[in-house]
Amino acid sequence: MTALLSGELRRLLSRRMIRVLTLLALAGIALAGILTFVNTEKVSDATLRQRAVDAEADVSQCLQGGGPPPVAPEPGDETLRGADREDLCRFRYDRVSDDRFKLEDLKGILQGVTAPLVIVAWVIGASSIGAEWQARSITTLLTWEPRRGRVLLAKVVAAVIVACVFSVLAWALVSAALLPSAFLHGTTAGTGGSWGRSMAAVVGRGTLMIAMATTVGFAVASIGRNTAAALGVGFAYFLVIENVVGSFLAGFRRWLILGNSIVLVSGEDGGGDVAGRSVLVAALYLSAVAMVLFGVATVLFRRRDVA
């Protein structure tokens, strides 16, 4: 099994798709780091305090009728409905400009980065088996290792390893790309031990999500014997079924993949669109979906003829 897994890893890493995804990820991360640095600035605590004092003075002046008039609510704007003059003054003037990059916000950024990484994981999973069907290399492999269950298991494990390593490296590089902004244009306040633990939890839950997305993409492509089929099924499911069921059958929302994924990645019980769903149950449910799909793919792979 070790030789089989090692071979699968070598094959997968030799794929042009992996290199292209890596280059795109590196370019995106570098761009994000540069844009963040350009759009943030170093602001001293004294300056921030002075800005707060100035804002309060503007609010006071507004309340006394001086200065430009407060913003009137736009027709249909629910935000300021029923607001009195003080609310309007504070809405307009009680703002302290703070363009520092706060390292504390990295947790939310990594959670946001998880969404595109899940798509990448789906593509890696689907392509790792779909391309083998297309190139017929699966036929060659089966003339060396006829135990099909082992072959499919080695392939999915290899795809999961590659997708997870890719994601962990992407999170690490995103963090690294934002460090100049944090240290030169920002603040590290609020990044103590509990922050570190919550960051580790974000990466842990994200990695689990990546593993499941890879497995599901792999299983669908294995059943359809085609990468495009898996990508098509994925988009059709998320764009059509999730929307239709989510809109018209509220009771079924708890069984939709997207809502459970949001709960898992956010790490907040009842987060996303699934009321009352805990992170643990979301993780178990998504794992079950991945395992069932992989089980179906394995049964079909063992029974069907190979061209």
Binding site: A3, L4, S6, G7, R10, R11, S14, R15, R16, A135, R136, S137, I138, T139, T140, L141, T143, W144, E145
Partner: peptide
């Protein structure tokens, strides 16, 4: 065995194609 057109791993070299399979045995 060779069944119809050989199913190869296009991203790998000829040597690597052989060595990846050879390791299985």
């Amino acid at each position: 065995s060779l069944v119809e057109m050989p199913g190869l791993f296009p991203g790998l070299s000829a040597r690597r194609n052989l060595s990846v399979l050879g390791r299985l045995e």
